[in-house]
Design a protein around this nucleic acid. Structure first.
Lengths: 124, 124
DNA sequence: ATATGTGCAAACTCTTTGCATGGAG
DNA sequence: CTCCATGCAAAGAGTTTGCACATAT
């Protein structure tokens, strides 16, 4: 990361101020509050860059698309509320990779997506 | 499903002859062997239709995109081999949905994706 | 005979890239 | 002062849609 421009700083701040998976369009909207001239190509270039540098993780959600969140929050999974459309981080992991593989297969990583109704929507 | 055209029949046959998740481009190539004039728009329209009718399931794979497979093969998960790029169905499921939800959340569905190296690639 | 289905091409969405300008170091 | 980064606009990839023609029923 050679130069810290105001655009790059604004994009990074969006991720620290919003600790959940964000879409590129959300990042653009939130960062434009700080740097109004910001263009979407710059957002794409910077999130890619942050991912390459290990500062952001990609969250590729079936049906929803690619989102990004800070990489330093540890292994966890995601829950998508079908009623309100919000995406939640669920801490922890119910899986042991050793138990998942048929003989001969080596599991190196996994992703688990949960769908349902969140606590807030169930109460409403 | 009002009419059984030769295109629709060819597309369906591709799924019965290839019982694994298929990309739209694969479906097109395989079905064109049966119906050379087949266009890609027809494939898109038909897989959508089959999904709506419950005959195909969508398999939305992070990083890979949307694939389709017969809906009658039951609950299972998918394994992506990082070495050869093949996608495998893994029978069964290591999860109990009841155990996954923090208090107040209702889990209605889940998807699990596994990444690693398949048995064939490990032997090679 | 009639309306659904097809094929083509244009439109659309999401993402990437080329290039001239701007600004961090 | 240099070179990396930005903004714009154009280019790509993947998917959807409008329309006239073809065809299953």
């Amino acid at each position: 990361m050679k130069r810290m421009t105001k655009q790059r700083r604004a994009i990074w701040e969006v991720f620290t101020e919003n600790p959940r998976p964000l879409r590129v369009e959300e990042v653009l909207a939130l960062a434009q509050a700080k740097t109004p001239t910001l263009g979407i190509a710059t957002v794409y270039r910077n999130v890619r860059r942050f991912v390459d540098d290990g500062k952001l993780s990609e969250v590729a959600l079936p049906e929803i698309g690619m989102l990004y969140e800070r990489a330093d929050i540890g292994h966890h999974h995601h829950f998508f509320c079908r009623r309100c459309g919000r995406l939640y981080d669920f801490p922890g992991c119910p899986l042991r990779e050793d138990d998942l593989a048929p003989r001969g297969y080596a599991i190196e990583a996994h992703e688990l997506f949960l769908y349902g109704v969140c606590a807030a929507c169930r109460e409403a």
